[in-house]
Design a protein around this nucleic acid. Structure first.
Length: 249
DNA sequence: AATATTAGCAACCGCACGCAG
DNA sequence: TCTGCGTGCGGTTGCTAATAT
């Protein structure tokens, strides 16, 4: 019985609207994916795409819940996913964006093409956090360093002095969580309309209909990339003022 | 060589949000 | 405006493999 049928049946019997329980309770598989399951999922998505995750497992013939399929695809099977160790630049970016955005892993992931929020979260929790919080590191001393197969990036930040100034330059006041996406789009267009004052080669602002967190992440990335550019800061400052006035904030 | 400990990471879970009816 | 659905996100768990004892 699929999730929808199960819900209808329970609703009929109880008169109440319910959500189907995930996985185990529906007699579905849990735990690690087998290569066979991976193949079925990849084949199906390559052929038909993933219009509806909830319906996908049934259509593909998988004994998994839609959520599980989505997670497996997004975090592991998607063709553009970059596997392997994080570079110093990637770790630096994670540290910098984490200072600005907090645990908004999807927003951070938006600035690291090919990396998933889950992967970034794991990297942060396993070693970057310790580097950024020496007190925690003292409470939980790392006695051993597990060496992964082919791992060479573990020691990238072994010496904290290697972390760039900009990474450690916390901009408390720049907390963006309360800032509406319109802000960034407006401010950056107000700044002068040209791209000369920004590192536009690596930055792309999305339209308002797209993921707002990624826009903010990218805008912030842009912001830090222009640390020494006084002209940029002046324009940004003016832009903020103009935007606030315009928006009656 | 056997066992204990730990790090790394894939996967699960529950909540929240946006959209459609 | 309200309600349900589908999806995405962040926190957490638990398994596996590497390392220490």
């Amino acid at each position: 019985m699929d999730a929808s049928s199960w819900e209808s049946e329970v609703q009929k019997q109880t008169g109440r609207m319910v959500r189907a329980p995930c996985c185990e309770k529906m007699g579905q598989n849990k735990g690690p994916w087998t290569p066979e399951e991976d193949k079925v999922l990849v084949d199906y998505i390559q052929r038909y795409g993933h219009g509806n995750w909830r319906a996908l497992p049934k259509l593909a013939g998988l004994l998994r819940c839609g959520k599980s399929c989505r997670l497996r695809w997004v975090n592991y099977l998607k063709p553009d996913i970059k596997r392997g160790n994080f570079t110093k630049e990637e770790e630096d970016t994670i540290i910098r964006l984490h200072q600005q955005l907090g645990n908004r892993w999807s927003a951070i992931a938006a600035s690291l093409p090919g990396r998933t929020d889950n992967e970034i979260k794991n990297v942060w929790n396993t070693h970057l956090k310790k580097l950024m919080d020496p007190e925690t590191a003292q409470i939980e001393p790392t006695k051993k360093r597990r060496k992964k197969k082919g791992d060479s990036a573990m020691s990238v930040f072994a010496d904290q002095s290697q972390i760039s100034e900009s990474s450690l330059d916390a901009r408390e006041e720049s907390s963006s969580s309360e800032i509406d996406e319109r802000f960034w789009l407006d401010v950056l267009s107000i700044s002068d309309g040209s791209e000369s004052s920004m590192n536009s080669t690596t930055v792309e602002l999305h339209p308002p209909t797209s993921n707002s967190t990624s826009s903010v992440a990218m805008a912030l990335m842009n912001w830090n990339d222009n640390d020494d550019d006084m002209e940029f800061w002046q324009k940004l400052s003016k832009g903020i003022g103009d935007w606030m006035e315009f928006s009656h904030v």
